[in-house]
Amino acid sequence: MNSITEQLTFSVALSTEAHGIAQEYSQGISNPDKRQQIYLNTLAVYAVDNYLQCMGFETDWQGSYSCDFLVIQLMNVADLEVKNLGKLECRPVLPKAEVCEIPPEVWEDRIGYVAVEFNSDLKEAKILGFTLQAEAEVPLSQLQSLEDFLLYLSELEIAKSPQHEESSNLVKIGQWLDGFVDAGWQTIEHLLNPQQLGLAFKSAVSMTRGQKIDLGMHFEQISVALVIKVAAGSEGEVNILTQVYPVGNHVLPQGVKLNITDELGENILEVISRDEDNWIQLEFSAELGEKFQIMVAYGESQQAKIFEV
């Protein structure tokens, strides 16, 4: 039986099914503290999963780290994948506690942290609120309300919808020639050092802008500058030169890919950096009103941007 209380919390009965799942994931753990940690984490995820489904959000508990036996033995993790939105961290709060503890290993790759308070006999869990702050301890008094939580998820759902993403990511490059440059695109002097500029920009162009892009993960992460040069062509066409430069280094690592695709997703041009390349580039022309995508990738990490001439 679920109920929303006057304090805008949400109570979830921890049934035999809930305890059975918690027992399944914690069994075989010899360390009693670790066993209890996994047990409580599982109950917290169960409660949030129940709550979100009641509120109409699709979840994927089986696709979360908290369902991976190896991960939960190595890490203090209680995540729940919300379909198309990302991972929520569901943190257990014991009776009479005044803070919600968030371990450092879950400070990244989370769209939020939900506090779940248990009663003394673990028969009921209460969803107290949430926070976006990844901190070791968050006072329960500083949690945002469940009303704000549902609003946040709804706004995130809209922001991550394909229609919104295409609209918000669309770069109207055709307007650059008229002086209307999309937000987030900097002059190249802000991105590249003078030595790189000397090598790269010997010929004049009508408009040049760039954007820093981070690729890769952790120790393999690299930063590059995606630079776009636009010049008026003949008969309503625009000549476009797109380049990728290293940021903070003199050369690109081997394997950086620059790719151009059309509106139908068909591959038009592609280049991959070799050992000791200072930059890579592709040059093409596009007609007014035409859309295309530029993708920069390194390893399994990639970023794509949609342009309209």
Rank of each mutant, 00 (worst) to 15 (best):
Y39F: 12
V181R: 06
D277P: 04
S66R: 04
E117S: 09
Y245V: 00
V106Q: 05
T16Y: 05
G255P: 02
S234H: 10
L14H: 10
V48P: 04
E270I: 07
Y152N: 08
Q302G: 00
N249L: 09
G20M: 05
A78S: 14
T9M: 08
E283A: 14
I21P: 00
E147P: 01
H250V: 07
G20K: 11
N278K: 13
T187N: 14
T16I: 05
Q243Y: 00
E220I: 02
N239K: 10
I280P: 01
Q133R: 11
E137Q: 15
A47E: 06
L197H: 09
Q254M: 13
Y65W: 08
I272W: 01
E237N: 12
Q7D: 13
A115L: 02
L282K: 04
I213T: 09
E98P: 00
C100L: 13
G299S: 06
E98I: 14
K202Y: 09
V99T: 10
I4R: 14
E155L: 14
N278Y: 13
Q133I: 10
Q221F: 08
I213Y: 01
N249Q: 14
V171M: 04
L143F: 01
T59I: 13
P194M: 13
E157M: 13
L14W: 01
V93R: 08
N50Q: 15
I280C: 05
L43R: 09
I294F: 04
W279K: 09
E101Q: 13
V244R: 03
A47N: 09
D68P: 01
R110L: 05
F57I: 02
G198A: 15
M75E: 04
M75T: 02
A115N: 03
Q27K: 03
F284Q: 02
E101H: 08
D148Q: 15
S145R: 03
G86Q: 12
E137R: 15
D68F: 12
Y245G: 03
E137H: 11
S167L: 13
P162R: 12
E135H: 07
E165A: 09
L122M: 10
L177D: 01
G20F: 02
V271D: 04
N31V: 00
C90S: 04
S301F: 05
G289L: 11
A297L: 03
C100F: 07
S15G: 03
M55V: 05
R274Y: 04
M1R: 07
D182I: 04
I21H: 00
I173C: 06
L143D: 02
Q7N: 15
Y298I: 06
M75G: 00
Q133H: 07
R91N: 01
L43V: 12
A159F: 06
R110M: 13
L74G: 03
D109H: 08
L241R: 10
E24L: 13
V71N: 06
P139T: 01
K291Y: 09
T208C: 15
D68W: 04
I21N: 01
L143K: 02
L258C: 05
F149L: 13
A97P: 00
I188K: 03
G265C: 12
W279E: 08
S206M: 10
L85M: 11
I102C: 05
Q62Y: 09
I111S: 06
D262S: 04
L52K: 07
I294W: 01
F201D: 03
S66G: 06
Q175G: 06
D109T: 07
K202L: 15
L226W: 02
